[in-house]
Amino acid sequence: MARPSAPPLLALSGVFKRFGAVQALTDVELEIHAGEVIALVGDNGAGKSTLVKVIAGVEPADTGTLEWQGRPIHIGRPHDAQHLGIATVYQDLALCDNLDVVGNLFLGREITRIGVLNEVEMERRTRDLLATLSIRIPDVHRPVASLSGGQRQTVAISRALLGAPSLVMLDEPTAALGIEQTAQVLDLVERLRERGLGVLLISHNLGDVKAVADWVAVLRLGRNNGFFDVTTTSQEQIVSSITGASDNAVTRRAAREGEL
């Protein structure tokens, strides 16, 4: 699979991030194009979440170059990322259990007229959004506490999509889900790609990665450790790249081919 030649949605290069004595990210680079799903994989502590936080503006990079659609940009706080059109769904979802689906989707950005909620308009937009994503929620007025884990995840992702972002970052969206629910969420990820969004998917599950991702970016000890085309790379190669057992002539050649 060839990568498109248009400037990438987001390009990072030479990103460094240090927390006290810990060098979390060292000279990391990454390119995300529109209409691509990039899986970000790596062992615990490899710097996946740190990289997501850098992009989301929660923990800005110490140094590094970020380009958005070819233009150099600076992301210093979450607002900057949101303004560019970068939406992040964290692992803990951050939903209010007692509010219904509509309430959660619009939490903090309710449609109001002189302080009074416009429930009808919010519900209409919720239904439109869920319909375009082919998400089936039995009742948008049910508190999200009574939804299944997969449905909660889709609500959280829908919430991120409400601002019409161009890039969506998903932190372990399937970690706590059963098989059927995982399938629902992966379907949703594919639909995001079909709509032309860039998706950065953090996952521990290489099965999921092989199923939906176009490219796999491996981080190891805070450094890039390979960028693979999912269709031509075996799971073993990815695993050995994650664990560091890959540092031999064969994998170096494979990695080089992947980058070319």
Binding site: L99, G108, T112
Partner: peptide
């Protein structure tokens, strides 16, 4: 029916979610 009331309920449902929602 007001945005203020929604905030009150949101706090009871998840402080962290409310904080992240701004």
């Amino acid at each position: 029916r007001t945005a203020y009331g929604r905030m009150i309920f949101a706090l009871g449902g998840g402080v962290e979610a409310a904080r992240r929602a701004g």
